[in-house]
Amino acid sequence: MTTLTIKEFTQAVGGGMTPRMVRHYHQLGLLPQPVRSPSNYRLYTQKDVLRLQRIVALKQQGFQLNHIRQILEVEPEEDTTASLMTQLQQQYRAVIQQISQLRQTASALEGLLGRDRDCEIIQAEVLAQLKLLEVDTQTGLGGLEKLWNGLDAQVHAHPEAFAESLERLLPEFSSRSEIEQDLISNLVLACGDVSLASFVRLSDRAIATSREVLKSGCQIVADIPTVAAALDTTRLAHLGCPVETLIDNSHITTATEAEKAFWQDQKWQEKLQQVSPGCVLVIGYAPSVLLSVCKAIQNQEIQPALVIGMPIGFSHAPAAKRQLMQSCVPFITVEGTLGGGLLAATVLNSLVESLIEKPDCHCYLRHS
């Protein structure tokens, strides 16, 4: 049996693995202790390579090391499916609890950092009192509630200054274009979750391509009426961009209904094949629509100029988005399960807003 030294072992695994990381994984119990040569060198086998590659792959998918150890502890000869699924469900609940706790902390920080300048005087007073507060006692918690009440009392004095809040809360985006920064800001405002900014993905030419085709009056295709209704029809009318709905049924209003309708009625799938070359697809609900779009693009059956792919779902939607990001077409998406019709429409509206000032909401009717 061929054996490898620790240096050869890390090279075979790849992924930036180092001997120091290997020794760390031994200490954590993720890797079994290797056999030793007569000179006391660690010797590894191909089985060790495969195990460490699996550890690296799971880590890249976001699993924590203690979770990975539990997954690897399930013996192959056991009925692993039920056991592993139970473990993953337990881990998921633990992670969701951690996210909930972090979300509470984030909300408290947002409540302080997101205050605009008109609140700064009382905010400074609250921060000064916060340093003196014993939050571990019941009295302290009551005092904290009073501080928040005092701070919140100022919100009735003026409208919220969203730009000031986002300037403090959003990550550093100086390397991105002004249009891209504005798009991400609008997405955050549409859902109220600052963390969304880290999951927005745009292809290299997404912005430039969208501006070109929108100025030329391209066709806009939304997956369901709810998404189409959220589009900025006033600006689109001024640009000469017609809006079409793929699943053209006013009774379809949810992701569940959209997914079911697209699969059950062949006419919607056939309609997808008929979209105009150079159109912009806006998909906010049905993951199967995005999957079909990616397949049709790959088979050169349709040629959209841009795909805004933000369907909702927990298995098909993330997979559809990954396929979109691997396609050759310009795209804008949000990684993972996050998405929705409002977010998809917000993206298109931000792109359109970058091209044309808000016109009189009825002036285009006089020219129709």
Rank of each mutant, 00 (worst) to 15 (best):
Q264P: 01
A124M: 05
G14P: 10
I312V: 15
L338P: 00
S100K: 12
V188S: 10
S195D: 15
L65Q: 08
G14L: 06
G309I: 06
Q181G: 10
F314M: 15
L88N: 03
Q264F: 01
Y364D: 08
L351F: 08
A229G: 04
Q90V: 02
C241S: 13
A344Y: 02
L109E: 10
D118T: 02
K358M: 10
D248L: 07
D223G: 04
D360L: 11
C328K: 13
A229L: 08
Q138I: 05
D232E: 11
Q98F: 00
S185D: 08
V200K: 10
R103D: 15
Q181F: 03
Q264E: 09
Y92E: 06
A94N: 06
V49W: 04
P287Y: 09
A161F: 04
L196M: 14
V188R: 09
G62A: 08
Q91G: 09
V200F: 05
M310C: 14
V280N: 12
T254I: 08
L170F: 04
S107N: 10
L236W: 02
N149I: 01
S292R: 12
Q64D: 09
P242R: 03
F262N: 10
V188G: 09
P159K: 06
G313R: 05
E8Y: 01
S83F: 02
P159E: 05
V221T: 08
A82H: 05
D48H: 11
K59Y: 02
D136E: 13
T137S: 15
A258N: 04
L50M: 08
S165K: 09
P225N: 09
Q98P: 00
F314L: 15
Q33F: 04
L102P: 00
S165T: 03
T256E: 11
I332T: 09
M17I: 13
K47D: 15
G341W: 07
Y92N: 06
P242N: 07
E178Y: 00
Y44V: 01
R201L: 10
S327T: 04
E180P: 03
I121H: 05
L28V: 07
G143I: 01
A229W: 02
